[in-house]
Nucleic acid binder design. Structure first.
Lengths: 262, 262
DNA sequence: CCGTTAGTGCTTGCATGCAATTTCCGGCCC
DNA sequence: GGGCCGGAAATTGCATGCAAGCACTAACGG
């Protein structure tokens, strides 16, 4: 079932006869030695990126055969990848029917706020306790990479550094379960981010908040670090929800026609 | 269900020519109408239970062919199920090798404490805000079911009611992301619980703490509910870690060199 | 006696074939 | 004209076949 604005009724892969998916696949095939066990993971990564970045719109049906053709693999790894993405919550499964890209309910993104805020707050507290001089430097490095990308107006690079910054904090927390949960949540957060154009307007505030987080971590102050992270995350996600609820009626960005996303 | 110190060194499927797995499978096959899309989910459930309850010991290798025979299905759904369980963190994948049941590191269980505590605390806060009279009654019902099972010394029933009690609180919190995360974490918590014999000694304290939680929820006091849950969870998991670390030195199971498959 | 190495069987990873179910479309009836 | 029904195409779910890679054995050399 296709969805909102359909002058193009069908967002499925079929629409693009030789899309970036294939290109990426080719690249991967050439670049690596094409090990035996690499197909499954590769397909997961490809599809995941397509979904998270919004190339595959919410509600789009995933036809196994088409994906096979596009990615030049057989149905087995594709099926497994789809199952994986269903577990990640990026797809929804209907029995005997094509999996569909999960909706991006406003309620759902709203629900993310409390959970991610809590998780990142915990990460901040733990990280502040465990952090080493080396880790402080690494965080600082990422922070300045972000500032650089901001200054150059390079959104993708900023984006990536931002994710790395937050993930690094969770790594420093040195709690594998926390990292696991964070990675799962990050998929959903990134998806919500990509579907909104909010970021350019929040760059500056975000960078300042990051500075505060960095300071609190460097001071090894768990309470302050946790609180700074909670505030930061809550600000970001709340703004995101606001932006999304505003765009809800008219979603102009997210043109799948161009071939962005490398 | 067997447990920690069991004198059979090899918990694998191969060892038991017609184990409970098969029986369960038969039961399921008979009971349901055996719909088309039911195999995958069924296999996941079977294997998951075997792992969570400890029938499949940590480190055990899962041979696809054997599982196929035991569960009387082909390799396709088994492979998909294994992939799913890897994502859940119950199995570990090695390229071109059998998946193995994830270890139950003490560090890992310890890491669970902070995360689960935080998550359940959040659930308590949200639940206290949202709770209705009906929900209060439902929670109370579960609480008294637990007391009944405790009085009758029925551990499995108690166990189940305990899980239901906690999950119900998360449901009341009415946050789908939170519920999703909780379900994932619950798998690991249950696995740790099953691997320890701690519970009979903690029944009474747990029930009292549950009463406190129930009271706080009924009073619609988020802070108190959250704190009560945090304390409760921390108590339980800390005791669990202590129990496990005590058992650690004398674990006949968990031998990496044990028989394959199975 | 021990470490190394070639050979062999088993296991996974992927591709493909088959059956059941759903969907889609045209015709039919009201 | 609209809704209902039937059949064909398409799609998923499951089973199976085949090749690459790993583990294990055993012989060999030091």
């Amino acid at each position: 079932m296709s969805f909102p604005d359909d002058d193009r009724p069908d967002m499925t892969l079929s629409q693009t006869p030789t899309p970036l998916a294939t290109l990426i696949a080719r690249a991967q095939a050439l670049d690596g030695g094409r090990k035996k066990g690499a197909l499954h993971g590769g397909v997961v990564t490809q599809l995941r990126n397509l979904i998270v970045t919004g190339v595959l719109a919410p509600g789009a049906k995933l036809n196994e055969r088409e994906i096979c053709e596009q990615l030049a693999v057989s149905r087995t790894p594709v099926r497994e990848a789809i199952k994986t993405l269903i577990q990640d919550g990026l797809l929804r499964a209907l029995p005997n029917q094509s999996a569909v890209v999960a909706e991006l309910d406003l309620d759902h993104v709203t629900a993310l706020i409390d959970v991610v805020t809590t998780i990142e707050g915990l990460a901040g507290e733990l990280a502040a306790r465990n952090i080493t001089e080396e880790a402080i430097a690494e965080i600082g490095l990422l922070h300045y990479r972000m500032r650089l990308h901001q200054a150059r107006d390079e959104l993708p690079g900023y984006f990536e550094a931002n994710t790395a910054f937050h993930r690094k904090i969770v790594e420093i927390a040195a709690n594998p379960v926390l990292l696991w949960v964070w990675d799962l949540l990050a998929l959903r957060v990134d998806r919500a981010r990509y579907s909104s154009n909010l970021w350019p307007t929040r760059w500056k505030a975000a960078i300042q908040e990051h500075q505060g987080i960095l300071d609190a971590l460097a001071a090894r102050d768990p309470d302050r670090a946790g609180e700074a992270l909670r505030q930061h995350v809550r600000n970001g996600l709340s703004g995101l929800v606001a932006a999304l609820s505003g765009e809800q009626k008219d979603p102009p960005q997210n043109r799948p026609d161009d071939k962005p996303v490398g």
